[in-house]
Nucleic acid binder design. Structure first.
Lengths: 166, 166
DNA sequence: AGAAGATACTTGACTAATCAACTAATGATC
DNA sequence: GATCATTAGTTGATTAGTCAAGTATCTTCT
């Protein structure tokens, strides 16, 4: 019964559509979470995006991953993946090597300092997420995840169709 | 029963905490929605952030709003509000005027071309949001909004406490 | 009234994101 | 096996975002 987002953004009129209200609510909530998580990551000298890349590379293990494969796995997609990784390489947190079997590809690997940095962030990150979402009960958390998963699957499909209509 | 986000990001291991999974899911879903909405707005020559400012100013009416008041109402907060509005002024979509009673403040108002641009976007925006969220039933939409509202309220509080601990 | 503090921006310097070419390597086809 | 298309990544130019410091104005408190 309480149109929270309307009060929060000091809107005079209610949203014409519930879907639009949900979209605005989703974007604003994500922004709050993003900034909250940022306060955990950024004091360690890397951005959230760089953290994301390191996590992906840790998950990928010894072999590493080709550059664009990393881009595809990022939480927030970015066309600037090359320079993002340039900065991580400058900080000695990742290393790069051209692939021998397919010389177009460049494999990226996380370094020991990179792994150490991630280790230091593991506990604080879990704690931050727990804190941010601790208002929700277990079942609510599960239902939030489910609603978001379905929304994402569907709107991603719409996004793809809109960009490349056949 | 399906850990969608794990498959999607090609993670090998499940998330150690449900809260972390929810946070990642939330951020990624917001990113998809943001890009989807971007495809509607950006062909009109403005960014999503600029669109957000115009919407706020349309809602504010004749009197307009002081610069920092706009920043507070934005969906995604930005410290670069001055230059964001500079760009809108250059495009003649907003006008600015120093307040006479408090000469520190600068009131921003949306111009006629700004209003026209918004009008052109109203229907497509509602449609985009509807499309993006059309997988969810009415009750699910309401419950998503509720879960997000509560999450945001709580984590925003945590964010504030963490930044300025007394 | 004059000083101290708070507000409301603004600016400068720097970093990062975006888009559109561009190169190099590979694969597919005739 | 030359040609065309595709893939993988890079680079350049432009735009946008971030953080710290600065200026002007107002408020409060002696």
């Amino acid at each position: 019964m309480s149109p929270t987002i309307i009060r929060e953004l000091k809107q005079k009129k209610p949203f014409p559509s519930k879907a639009e209200e949900a979209a605005v609510t989703l974007l604003r909530t994500a922004d709050v979470i993003r900034r909250f998580i940022g306060t955990v990551i950024e004091p360690h000298g890397i951005t959230s995006q760089q953290y994301n890349v390191l996590r992906i590379l840790r998950g990928a293990g010894e072999r590493g991953l080709p550059t664009l494969e990393i881009a595809e796995r990022m939480i927030e997609s970015t066309p600037g993946i090359t320079r993002l990784i340039d900065r991580l390489e400058t900080k000695k947190l990742v290393s790069r090597e051209r692939c021998l079997t397919d010389r177009r590809q460049v494999f990226c690997r996380i370094t020991a300092p990179g792994l150490a940095l991630l280790s230091a962030l593991d506990a604080p990150m879990v704690e931050a997420a727990d804190t941010a979402l601790s208002v929700l009960k277990k079942t609510e958390l599960a239902s939030l995840i489910d609603l978001l998963d379905r929304t994402r699957a569907h709107s991603n499909q719409q996004f793809i169709e809109r960009r490349s209509p056949q």
